[in-house]
């Protein structure tokens, strides 16, 4: 049994490690305990800015600090970052200020708080903004490494992390293979490619096991960077497998599935099946119950793979 951890813990750990750069500052909107920026606050209170429960202000305070040479990491729940979308659009992305927004508790996997706390559209909306990098890592190791890379970036970003624990995939992986903008091939198979992000990467791996028992060999991609999309990798697996499935704990509209569909529509006729939240809101439930209810779990990915293969 592999180690279990939540991606938000990787974020918190990365902030701590980034603290040696005295230009790194952390902004909170009352949810540092949840997003895990609290560790940074404890160690570096002078560089942690409490913005109260005021996300719109937080994003622009971060923008002002970025314009003055600081490297701000601002976090709250994914859903509450959305309240500040126009601040992100006009005050951060448009002037291309390197503010790094982390939305934790993204997706229906967040669970029992119910639909008000389950962002299923964050990846889609931030992906529409020029200059903004959009990330959704699948484990604490990759979250930690990608967060640290963001600190070196000159443009803004949005990263979704998750509340609940999922299997850790990269404990024994060469860290240099985890790079912003580069999808990771976790398994190599010739029949179908499953491109997943976040909490559904481990579901995709389970699906690959089930497919393998049926004699279907699946390629599995962890597409932690939604934007810029690793289109070379998409093209490569499209050519190799001839059928693609995307899987994300996010609306089927506009997220990873949307990004892959947009690319494929211009590059090949590869059949694509999108596993995601089917244009509906969630409800209260345990994380695993939500994946079932929303038809996101491994068996649903298996079915999508079978559909994609029959469309070849």
């Amino acid at each position: 049994m592999s180690r279990m951890a939540a991606t938000r813990d990787g974020y918190g750990q990365a902030l701590l490690e980034l603290a040696e750069n005295d230009k790194v500052v952390v902004l909170e909107a009352d949810l540092g305990k949840s997003t895990k920026s609290l560790h940074f606050r404890k160690a570096h209170p002078e560089r942690t800015i409490s913005c109260g429960i005021g996300e719109q202000n937080m994003l622009l305070v971060a923008a002002g600090m970025a314009s003055s040479g600081y490297i701000p990491f601002a976090s709250t729940f994914a859903i509450f970052t959305e309240r500040a979308f126009e601040q992100m659009r006009n005050g951060v992305a448009r002037p291309n200020l390197a503010v790094h927004v982390c939305g934790s508790h993204g997706g229906t996997h967040t669970g029992t708080d119910g639909s008000s706390a389950q962002s299923i559209e964050d990846l889609a909306i931030y992906r529409t903004l020029p200059n903004v990098t959009v990330l959704h890592p699948c484990d604490d190791v990759s979250t930690r490494l990608l967060t640290k890379q963001l600190a070196k970036s000159n443009s803004p970003s949005y990263m979704r992390t998750a509340r609940n624990k999922t299997p850790v995939l990269y404990d024994d992986t060469d860290p240099s293979t985890i790079q912003i903008g580069k999808g990771i091939e976790l398994r190599d198979g010739a029949d179908v490619a499953i491109i997943a992000c976040g909490v559904l990467v481990s579901e995709a791996l389970k699906a690959a096991d089930a497919l393998s028992e049926q004699g279907i060999q699946a390629t599995i991609i962890d597409m932690h960077t939604i934007k810029p999309l690793d289109t070379q990798l998409v093209d490569r697996v499209a050519a190799r497998c001839g059928a693609i499935v995307t899987a994300e704990d996010h609306s089927v509209i506009g997220g990873l599935g949307g990004a892959v569909a947009e690319h494929l529509s211009a590059s090949s006729c590869t059949p694509l099946e999108r596993v995601g939240v089917n244009d509906r809101f969630g409800e209260s439930g345990q994380a695993d119950e939500m994946l079932e209810l929303m038809e996101l779990s491994a068996p649903h990915i298996v079915k999508a793979a079978q559909r994609a293969i029959t469309r070849k």
């Binding site: 800015i49 002002g64 600090m65 970025a66 005050g91």
Partner: peptide, 15 residues
């Protein structure tokens, strides 16, 4: 938006 941005500039100056 400007007051929040200005606040960020003021915080940066103090830091």
């Amino acid at each position: 938006m400007g007051l929040s941005f200005g606040m960020g500039c003021a915080l940066a100056a103090r830091l």
